[in-house]
Write a protein that binds this DNA or RNA. Sequence first.
DNA 1: TGTCTGGTTTGATTTGCATCAAGCCAGCAC
DNA 2: GTGCTGGCTTGATGCAAATCAAACCAGACA
Lengths: 256, 256
Amino acid sequence: MRPGDLERVQSLPLFQDAAPETFRVATAGAHVQRFPAHTMLLLEGDPVDFLYVLLDGQAELHGTWNDHETVLAILRPVSTFILAAVVLDTVALMSARTLERCELLMIPGDAIRTAMRLDARFAQAVSRDLAGGYRGLVRTIKNHKLRGGVERLANYLLALRASDNAGSTVRLHFEKRILASLLGMTPENLSRAFAALHDHGVTVEGSLVHIAKPGALEALAKPDPLIDNHAPRGGDILIDADAEIWSSEWNRATSR
Amino acid sequence: MRPGDLERVQSLPLFQDAAPETFRVATAGAHVQRFPAHTMLLLEGDPVDFLYVLLDGQAELHGTWNDHETVLAILRPVSTFILAAVVLDTVALMSARTLERCELLMIPGDAIRTAMRLDARFAQAVSRDLAGGYRGLVRTIKNHKLRGGVERLANYLLALRASDNAGSTVRLHFEKRILASLLGMTPENLSRAFAALHDHGVTVEGSLVHIAKPGALEALAKPDPLIDNHAPRGGDILIDADAEIWSSEWNRATSR
DNA sequence: TGTCTGGTTTGATTTGCATCAAGCCAGCAC
DNA sequence: GTGCTGGCTTGATGCAAATCAAACCAGACA
């Protein structure tokens, strides 16, 4: 483990509330492992023995059925994944694969479950993390069931712009075929969706996307705070911070 | 509150592990309320003040965007809902509406959050509940992204058969237009999907669905334990019980 | 009983998306 | 350089699902 890695992990919402002792015990049995690009970390259906913490690199969660595959999330550091399976001590519903060279901290599931038993504050943090994840998935489902492909792409771009505090040009952090699968379409159709956004001020050059007229794009995308976690709140002070500061990339990845 | 109601609530996975004192405190501030059919219980975007427990009747969770609406889950007794929003003390992402006359126990969110702080076992139970819910949503997303409409319907029918331990005839518990929305299609297409299943031994009479050739239907549906919670496990003893005995109807509702 | 209403079904048409196929382009090995 | 390879794009075609429209049917109700 590199200097600073533990601190980065400890500052995750999942752990920052835990008692120092809890954190120490949980990470005592953990180990860091490096994986090359395009390596399967976990296969759906397999028992989950570790909570994974992505320290460096990018990874993907995907699901399979009937010889088809769909990307469910893209993970970027620092984030944890498959917490739900760890809590229930059961098999994974998603497979995980590295997109590039990755460095992962693997914390034994037993340690996590024990820590939950001993430290109520940690158990609460787990609950908050899972609740945030749950809500991210609800957003994803609404995104997919209520919007068409072009709208999903438009909102994804707006989310990227908001999250990477980018200016008018945003960078896609991974291949377009991955993005297509994440957004629930074929690479061909993603290409056509980008073409459709051309009329709304969007131009593409490799992995760089220029948004010339954010207003026009928003008019098409109709972002909604109840689907897109970045979207502007209706003008009220009631809710000033959605507690979903969440460890994984779900929100960004699934278009917020 | 009727006699026996409290016992039914206490026997939920969410509460059966809690200390009796915890349960007493949490339900002390709770009250039972009855609602007529087709009544909005909760509007997406509104702050969530209560954890709802459906004691009697049927209710629906749905989401809205751009004048469209989609059903996200059907709830049947006894189940809790919007736990995630309660844990995070934030606004609802889904609206809730009664489908028929309903009886609900409403537990103040404060009481739930306090109980989590005081009782680590309860906090663990909340985590398990949310983890189960999370996994239910992952299943739902895989179901929608990987399967076509007819396949979703076929699997839904098989799930119904398995859960209601029905024989060869199953009962749809709610209107077909609701089911259509839940499965992500229009009522017209649900009708056509049923017609398509006719060749595979499925006949419909009102809300009664007869499955003449379960084998043929399974061949079409290709149920998968990693999507459909009812599906037969591959032949191993490793996992004998998925811990997702979960309070709500998600699994059944969203086709398991 | 007749009439109204709303859910369901069926058919015709259009739209959206997937599939198939070819071409393009950059990176890279040789 | 040449010739790969793999990702991306573009076009043509086919299929699945939404939409539009009309008919049907059952229950509610006067």
